[in-house]
């Protein structure tokens, strides 16, 4: 998994590239936790280049979002998922508890409103 980040207006935009499965979810979790330790509270996970997501990836997204909302008044949302990835968010019902946006800019703006 390739992970890159761009921070603007205190929103961390994290760009994931690759499969988000049981083999790679630990890297993503570690990366975000490090940024939380650094003081970031708002995250957009850009999934335009995520070709596949499994429940292990969903678990990381859910756990981090829950922690951010409970402990630091922050939040996490998803941007630009491919149709197969969006479908996994939908059948798991996670689209009802997390915001999913068409693109990363719109997602980041959502936090500023």
């Amino acid at each position: 998994m390739k992970i890159t980040e761009n921070v603007q207006n205190n929103v961390s935009r994290i760009f994931l590239d690759g499969r988000f499965d049981a083999n790679t979810c630990g890297e993503v979790e570690q990366f975000i936790r490090k940024r939380i330790d650094d003081g970031m509270h708002y995250f957009v996970l850009d999934m335009e280049n995520v070709s596949f997501i499994a429940s292990a990836g969903l678990r990381v997204v859910l756990v981090i979002a829950k922690e951010l909302r409970n402990t630091s008044r922050g939040d996490l949302c998803i941007a630009s998922p491919q149709p197969n990835v969006r479908k996994v968010f939908e059948i798991s019902g996670i689209d009802n508890v997390l915001q999913i946006h068409e693109d990363v800019e719109r997602a980041a703006k959502g936090f500023l409103q």
């Binding site: 429940s55 979002a65 059948i91 798991s92 508890v97």
Partner: peptide, 22 residues
């Protein structure tokens, strides 16, 4: 329970749920 609110969400069991659903 895939309809639970975020704070009540269990993070386990989704993989098996997908297998059965799909």
């Amino acid at each position: 329970d895939i309809t639970a609110a975020l704070e009540d969400r269990s993070v386990g069991g989704l993989g098996i749920y997908f297998i059965k659903q799909l």
